[in-house]
Write a protein that binds this DNA or RNA. Structure first.
Length: 923
DNA sequence: CCTCTGCAAAGAGGA
């Protein structure tokens, strides 16, 4: 049976004498949470019925009304599992598979058997690559995590060879695959100064070894293959992507040379991880294959005379268990928040190629390490800052891990209700694409919503994302019919959100770079040890708005940084664009960044207007993914594929580069440097998030409004306050506040001004205050229903009571849009804002495509003539999304001429701020 | 809950 629970006290490890000699054991007091019958296909003694196992114990799984047993149960871990026992701390989760029940002095206990695995914190999913790094040296694992993998040729080549390998397995022609894959990496190869021909030749050499080996297999037997499978194990808490699986056993590709008889130990460990993953998916794996593609006939194996690049090895029980113990070390360390020192492993520092880096990092961060320290430690306040943010980012990471665990902890219906999955899809067809990939189609029942969006990566499965057949797929189209692309065909009936650690990885790298690579002057400013300095500038940039002009002057003249506070509609975007133009005219290279793609595109749009005729359009580049960048900015988007020299030239020649802060943390952007970085909507960014952009530039300008949306973080911690807000307090002399708004009719701005800006927000001109729909060509307010004629109106809808959607509100909104259209408005002049992604997709299904419907978060930074707000709350205003009033501020300040609030007045009246809003809207 | 993100894995070199 499998036993699971929470460690309830100190763990005792000792030695006892048995008939076999001295043996180690650990007694773990465990507060049981579950006991499951083990799946034993042969009906062996382990497959006792659940009821018998549970009798006398209280088990959370066995009934909702059962009180948890106050007394912990002793679980004894024998032999080498005591190593994992040493890692345990009270509160940690523990899983013991194939345990045996034992009566001792009248008490029920459990113990490990020869078939047992002991898993520490099983819901923490450890990456296979993390285990591979860890076995080399735990400190190396930490260094990799901290700084990310830099752009270098061996890595890029390795990636291409892997892709070609996958293509070969899927039946693609070798030459065609090489050409296509080298082309896809054009930009990276350009940055590395590589030519496509030499890379293709290099890849061809490696691929030749693969092909020859594949041919051998084909001659002798019918091999069953599949490539690149993403595997997740809920039992062992491991996830990874296997290069290939042949007859159920893992094949791992290595682009290096290995002339020894045996595979490298770390490579074996990696293959063993995949074996564990495959075992959980029904396999019975006892061999693995490593394919060293640089081995060739010329490098005859010194011992065996072997000519092939492949090395098979057998995987015993002992190796698999060793791998689980390694995995436990990582899980325990990450749970307790400790930093590896290197003493955990047996690696010899003098042989390590990372020894110098390791010593420098240890020295600067004042960390204990086996390699020792060199250099001067960072000042205490910087060390404290590093530790605080490291912890906060890792806390975010654990939240992502919790999302993974939900893939199996929640059942299908729960996930669908949470909008984390689309279930019960009807599979339509699978169609082979060029290059061996597949297009999959499925149909959803009308009305099913989720937070999935086109362009997202998802787990596409035939029923369960972890237990069933499951593939990582990309959503190409999301209508009633859903179109996906994936490496292998799955008869897809379900889609699940795939959680990603990418953001946390990049935040960590940005933190590392800011403190360990950042220059001293920059850090003096960030830590308040020096005051920002400004160059005297006589020029007038904007002559009808003194504050805007002051802001541009500060931005252009800043030697360190400038801070621009811009409430809604005060011309932030214009001010940024004007400042960038001035910098460009001085010959500087400028980075334009913001948290969301939408904000980047908005700012870029205003900038394009300013730069017209100033520089060549080709010198303005937008970096980002195709699905992220707005269609009308696509012409400026930097394509990654193509000829390396061309791609490189396109990027290097760009005088203005625009990208989200997440993209600024990518390997490609990290190779770039700028004179100045301007970050829009900076109040929405965490400190490390802001650093990802400003790390790339000599000086920076942050523009934002802390009365609007704060950073999005999963856990409450140091990440919730933006660098912008902190610097505004630290260096008030570097800041300017814009105070005149050019957007809203007086009636619309009244509430926000009073509620969020002490009444200080004022219309810039009388015309702004007085603007109404009548000013628009072909629109007559008189043609609207009476209740919509005022610039602010409220439509009371009782709502349908669901959590993240409301079909009644959606239906009313569709009617409202028809009414506005009938009065002469263009659909493109109307925007709809909802708090939840699911409601956004619900509304989208009700209204024409050319009406912009989006979440508050994605609407920040833009405006429309008419805005309709869907509150999506019935009865009460529960949920964190309503608690942050700054979100309301954003929603209510998007319109220029008309605002319609749609919601349940009873729900809104339960909160004082929403109550005042209601009074204002209903006046 | 909201956001972002080509996923994950890619690796010369040695005692």
């Amino acid at each position: 049976m499998h036993v699971r629970g929470t460690v309830a006290g100190e763990v005792e490890v000792r030695s006892v004498s048995t008939s076999y000699g001295e043996t180690d054991l650990a007694e773990v007091p465990l507060q049981l949470t579950a006991i499951e019958a083990a799946a034993a296909p042969d009906g062996g003694p382990e497959s006792e019925p659940l009821a018998a196992a549970v009798e006398g114990d209280s088990v959370a799984d066995s009934g909702p009304n059962l009180e948890p047993d106050p007394e912990p149960t002793t679980v004894t871990l024998w032999n080498k599992w005591t190593e994992s026992a040493e890692l345990l701390e009270p509160g940690m989760e523990l899983l013991v598979t194939n345990a045996e029940q034992d009566e001792y002095q009248g008490e029920t206990q459990y113990k490990t058997t020869g078939d047992s695995y002991v898993v520490v914190e099983p819901s923490f999913l450890v990456n296979v690559t993390a285990i591979r790094n860890w076995v080399e040296c735990p400190r190396l694992y930490y260094l990799n995590k901290l700084s990310g993998v830099p752009l270098n040729y061996p890595v890029v080549k390795g990636t291409i060879v892997h892709e070609v390998f996958g293509d070969l397995l899927r039946g693609r022609d070798l030459e065609e695959s090489i050409d296509a894959r080298v082309d896809e990496h054009g930009l990276e190869l350009g940055l590395l100064g590589e030519s496509p021909d030499s890379v293709a030749e290099d890849v061809r050499e490696n691929a030749g070894a693969i092909e020859g080996w594949l041919e051998q297999g084909r001659l002798t037997e019918e091999d069953s293959w599949r490539s690149e499978q993403l595997l997740i194990s809920e039992t062992f808490g491991i996830r990874g992507r296997a290069d290939a699986i042949r007859r159920g056993a893992p094949v791992e590709l290595k682009t290096g040379k290995n002339l020894k008889k045996e595979p490298r130990f770390k490579d074996k460990v990696q293959a063993a991880c995949y074996a564990l993953l495959l075992e959980e998916h029904g396999g019975d794996v006892d061999t693995g294959t490593l394919l060293y593609t640089k081995n060739s006939a010329l490098d005859r194996n010194e011992e065996t005379g072997d000519l092939t690049p492949a090395k098979d090895f057998s995987m015993g029980d002992g190796l698999l268990k060793f791998v689980v113990r390694l995995r436990n070390e990582i899980a325990a360390m990450e749970t307790s928040g400790d930093i590896p020192t290197g003493y955990e492993g047996s690696a010899k520092c003098e042989y390590c190629f990372e020894q110098d880096t390791c010593m420098v990092v240890s020295g600067r961060l004042d960390q204990e390490s086996k390699a020792g320290q060199i250099g001067q430690a960072l000042p205490d306040e910087e060390l404290e800052y590093f530790e605080r943010f490291y912890r906060a980012i890792e806390e975010e990471r654990r939240e992502v891990h919790r999302e993974y665990a939900k893939l199996w902890e929640q059942d299908a219906q729960e996930r669908a209700d949470d909008d984390r999955a689309l279930i019960d899809l009807e599979f339509v067809e699978k169609r082979p694409l060029e290059g061996g990939r597949w297009e999959l189609r499925a149909r959803r029942e009308g009305g099913a919503t989720s937070k999935l969006r086109e362009g997202d990566l998802v787990l596409a499965s035939d029923g369960h994302p972890v237990r069933g057949q499951s593939e990582l797929a990309r959503i190409e189209r999301l209508d009633d019919e859903i179109v996906l692309t994936a490496d292998e065909p799955v008869e897809v009936t379900r889609l699940d959100v795939y959680p990603s650690e990418l953001t946390t990885d990049r935040l960590l790298a940005a933190l590392h770079d800011a403190l360990l690579k950042g220059d001293e002057r920059r850090k003096d400013i960030l830590f308040g040890r020096a005051d920002p300095e400004f160059e005297e500038i006589e020029e007038t940039f904007i002559d009808n708005n003194a504050r805007q002009n002051e802001a541009v002057t500060k931005a252009v003249g800043a030697k360190d940084c400038a801070l621009i506070h811009g409430p809604p509609g005060t011309g932030k975007t214009y001010t940024i664009a004007r400042a960038i133009r001035a910098m460009v005219e001085r010959g500087e290279r400028v980075l334009l960044s913001a948290f969301t793609n939408r904000a980047v595109d908005n700012a870029l749009e205003a900038l394009l207007e300013q730069l017209e005729g100033v520089i060549d359009e080709e010198r303005i580049v937008r970096v980002g993914s195709e699905s992220g960048v707005r269609d009308d900015m696509e012409p400026y988007r930097l394509e990654r594929a193509g000829d390396p020299e061309d791609r490189l030239a396109e990027l290097q020649n760009a005088q203005v580069v625009a990208a989200t802060t997440a993209t600024c943390g990518s390997r490609i952007m990290k190779e770039q440097s700028f004179d100045a970085a301007l970050v829009d909507e900076a109040a929405q960014l965490t400190e490390p998030g802001t650093c990802a952009a400003i790390n790339l530039a000599e000086r920076f300008v942050l523009v934002g409004d802390h009365e609007q949306l704060p950073p999005v973080v999963r856990a409450e911690n140091d990440l919730s306050e933006s660098l912008f807000e902190r610097l505004v307090d630290l260096h008030p002399e570097a800041g300017v506040m814009l105070d005149r708004q050019y957007r809203m009719n007086q009636r619309i701005q009244a509430f926000a001004s009073r509620e969020f800006y002490d009444g200080k927000l004022r219309p810039a001109e009388p015309e702004v205050a007085a603007r109404t729909l009548d000013d628009l060509e072909g629109v007559a307010r008189a043609d609207l229903p009476e209740h919509l004629q005022d610039p602010v109106s409220f439509v009371d809808v009782e709502g349908d009571g669901s959590r993240y959607t409301d079909s009644e509100e959606a239906a009313r909104i569709a009617e409202l849009i028809e009414a506005y259209e009938a009065a002469g408005l263009e659909r493109s002049e109307i925007g709809v804002i909802a708090p939840f992604r699911a409601q956004v997709s619900e509304i989208s299904a009700h209204v024409p495509d050319d009406v912009a419907v989006d979440t508050v978060d994605r609407f920040q930074g833009s405006s429309q003539e008419v805005i309709v707000v869907s509150f999506t709350a019935t009865g009460s205003l529960e949920g964190p999304i309503f608690e942050d009033y700054r979100r309301i501020n954003v929603a209510l300040t998007r319109p220029k001429r008309a605002l319609v609030l749609v919601g349940d007045s009873n729900a809104l009246a339960t909160d004082p701020v929403y109550g005042r809003m209601l009074e204002w809207a209903r006046r």
